[in-house]
Amino acid sequence: MRTERLGRSSVQVTALGFGAAGIGNLYRAMDDDTADRAVDAAWQAGIRFFDTAPHYGLGLSERRLGAALAKRPRDEFTVSTKVGRLLAPAPETAHLSDEAGFHVPADHTRRWDFSADGVRRSLESSLERLRLDRVDVVLIHDPDEHWRSAVDEAYPALHELRDQGVVGAIGVGMNQWQMLERFVTETDVDTVLLAGRYTLLDQSAAPSLLPRCRDRGVSVLAAGVFNSGVLATDDPGRMYDYRQIPEAVHGRATRIAEVCRSHGVALPQAALAFTARHPAVASLVVGAQTAAQITRNVELAGVPVPDALWADLAAEGLVRR
């Protein structure tokens, strides 16, 4: 599988990355064996980039990913994790379920912390859960309401860790593009993880953020290419950006699917190809919960899509020209 370097760092990522939120029991529970088989399928398909976070399943994603990768040569894969949320034990709520969309006991609470000390503590805990002595990429996670502390405290701490060689590349991961553009413009990040803002249904990052990334030599890790599921199946689903899809958006997705079908292209195939074709995008970080989903996504990503499809979609105003 093709690999690309992140920004000016030496860190390499494969064209497809494994998004590990799913193995943190996102939306539904799974057992450890199913999670392990999903990571194995990604490895067998040539994926060597794995993205996780403490937020995903209150550390469950990191623990499962670490267990699955423990049998692999450390120099043959790239791992990214995130900082910004510290996990604090909460035995008093362990009998309840997590309220952040993950089917896990609420035996920890998430506490926002973008301080330099919080960054180091978060990374130390992540290394323990991942069973690793280093991670390759560290991303500031969802600093939407915490710009000042993220840029004044978390970013300098990561910059220092990168200078010391403790991590290979640093960046920011968000579901919006506006603040990512500020980081790209005002800091020296290597990469941004952009979730859901450059897809077949939402190209809001295209006019400004993506060109700025190109100008500044910042690599884009594109996540959420299926917009939470609506683009993941041949017939558009009903989940869009973590909630029920508005009818107008579903109608647009349905028309996109019809145009794709006229070219012999499956909707998820087009979703993968559309995002991947942008020159700013280094890797598609695609989530999956089963080995079958991983295998299918890799197969779809390997099938060429005719240029005429993009022309027809643009002619109908369904994607930006």
Rank of each mutant, 00 (worst) to 15 (best):
L58E: 04
V167M: 06
Y56W: 10
M179K: 07
A116Q: 13
G84P: 15
F49P: 03
K82I: 06
H103N: 05
H108Y: 15
H159P: 02
T78L: 06
D152I: 00
F49L: 12
E99W: 09
S122N: 15
L180T: 01
F50M: 08
H95N: 03
T78M: 06
V167S: 02
L87A: 07
A53N: 10
T109D: 02
R148S: 13
R162A: 05
D133R: 08
M179N: 01
V135L: 10
D133S: 07
L69W: 14
S97K: 11
R111K: 13
V104G: 13
P105H: 07
H141R: 15
D152S: 09
E92M: 11
R72A: 04
L58Y: 06
Y56K: 05
E62I: 01
A100P: 01
L87F: 04
A169M: 06
L127G: 07
L161R: 13
D133T: 07
V167I: 13
Q176A: 13
P143Q: 08
R131K: 11
T52E: 11
D152V: 00
L65S: 10
G57D: 01
T52N: 05
A169H: 12
Y155M: 07
I170G: 02
H141E: 08
F50W: 05
L87Y: 06
P91D: 10
R182W: 00
E181H: 04
A53S: 15
G165L: 12
L180E: 11
V166A: 11
A157F: 03
P89W: 01
R74H: 15
D133G: 12
F102H: 09
G165N: 13
H55D: 08
Q178L: 05
G171A: 04
S125A: 15
F114M: 01
D144N: 12
L69D: 14
L161F: 09
A70I: 09
L87D: 04
S97L: 09
K82A: 08
E76V: 14
R134D: 06
R85C: 06
S80W: 02
E99L: 10
L132N: 14
D117S: 08
A90D: 14
A94I: 03
V184A: 00
V83P: 07
R129A: 11
R134Q: 14
S80M: 04
G66D: 09
L180N: 02
T52K: 09
R110M: 10
G84H: 14
V137A: 04
L96A: 15
Y56A: 03
E92N: 11
V119A: 06
S122Q: 14
E160G: 13
T109K: 04
L86F: 07
F183E: 00
G165W: 11
R134G: 05
L180Q: 15
G101Y: 06
A106Y: 08
S115P: 09
R64Y: 00
S125D: 14
L132C: 13
S122P: 12
A154E: 03
T185E: 11
E99Q: 12
D51M: 01
P73H: 11
V79C: 04
F102W: 10
F102T: 06
R129S: 11
F183I: 00
D75E: 13
D133I: 01
D98E: 09
T78P: 05
Q178N: 05
